[in-house]
Design a protein around this nucleic acid. Sequence first.
DNA 1: TATATGAGCTAACAATCGTTAGTAAAACAA
DNA 2: TTGTTTTACTAACGATTGTTAGCTCATATA
Lengths: 198, 198
Amino acid sequence: MGEVLSSSSRKAQVIRVAAELFREKGYVASSMRDLAQKLGIEAASLYSHIKSKEEILHILCFDMAEDFMVSLNQVEKQQNLTASQRLQQGIIGHIQVMARDLTASAVFMNEHRHLSQPFLRDFLLLRINYINRFKKMIEDGVADGEFKKEIDKKLAVMTLFSSLNWMPQWYNPDSVIDPESLGKQLADMLVNGLKQNR
Amino acid sequence: MGEVLSSSSRKAQVIRVAAELFREKGYVASSMRDLAQKLGIEAASLYSHIKSKEEILHILCFDMAEDFMVSLNQVEKQQNLTASQRLQQGIIGHIQVMARDLTASAVFMNEHRHLSQPFLRDFLLLRINYINRFKKMIEDGVADGEFKKEIDKKLAVMTLFSSLNWMPQWYNPDSVIDPESLGKQLADMLVNGLKQNR
DNA sequence: TATATGAGCTAACAATCGTTAGTAAAACAA
DNA sequence: TTGTTTTACTAACGATTGTTAGCTCATATA
């Protein structure tokens, strides 16, 4: 997990509470005074722990981004698997990372656009890279004849990410279904739509 | 289409430009002075046309909501179709409504949470109703034996909506693929994942 | 012609925003 | 015991926010 978020320092605590606030109200609508109140301190006291409001957003976004990268690296190592198996593993991994911190995931998804330059650019480059690595798996599947050759690869990968990324909005972590079997079901649903009809 | 948005009054023009702004920067981060500048007038002059900033958001959200309702009403009338055919028609309709105004759709999707009460509650009730009507189609398909009986219906309908709703973020209206065939492809991909393996 | 409406302006308001300066007490390290 | 770090405070700053009051001018309607 990202260094800062997983620590138990006061700074990490500030950032976790900020994540909850950003998720509820959005980054721009969340004031530093709101955040301070949630922590039971004064707004000015926040600056003993963080450099700026944006630093919080930066840490939330980039720590999550790193976790996603690490997860995907693991999957790509397993070149003995078929494309559809790797794709499924990638989906499960993505969901597990999300489920580990649904609050930060929601912020990562919906608020990253409020990063200022050049951080926004860096973030978007990371994301494009991540998406392209999933797209590659789909292309591999088509090349192997495992997936239909008629599928629109861009559409397929965008549909996949839409489904994954919206999850923090509706998934209830206290639900009966645990992240791994959720990941499996979702992967089945999405990957089966790509496979050749046997 | 919603009454206000489709008109060519100055008010409608203000709202359309506001939609572009809200989409780019988000509702909260868009100031009335930003909006005025885009229109080449002073901020105070906006209030000759609209009652408040929130009225703009209200109109954007509820006009879109109505369009979605109208589209789904059309589909539900066709009870001669199978569940999967109706589901496909519903998906195509949803995408066509979105494609008719991608900017307003993006605002509808991402900014509705900044509506104040009681409008937010009203909006969410409309949305729940809309989603449940799609869920009903999936349940019908399972009851008919057309869809697998093992599928998690909540998961299926949420995956469906995630895919649909994220579309305004990446779909390029100048692209080679037109809304109807996009709708068909997407419907195929998503509905095939539900069907029984023949 | 008289009147009403649409569309814009300047000036200003009260509130809220992120942030800084300077300070103080407590906890920890040497 | 001394010095350092952590955590918090009060007070205040300049900037920006949505909105209102009061006005002018052009166009459309009666």
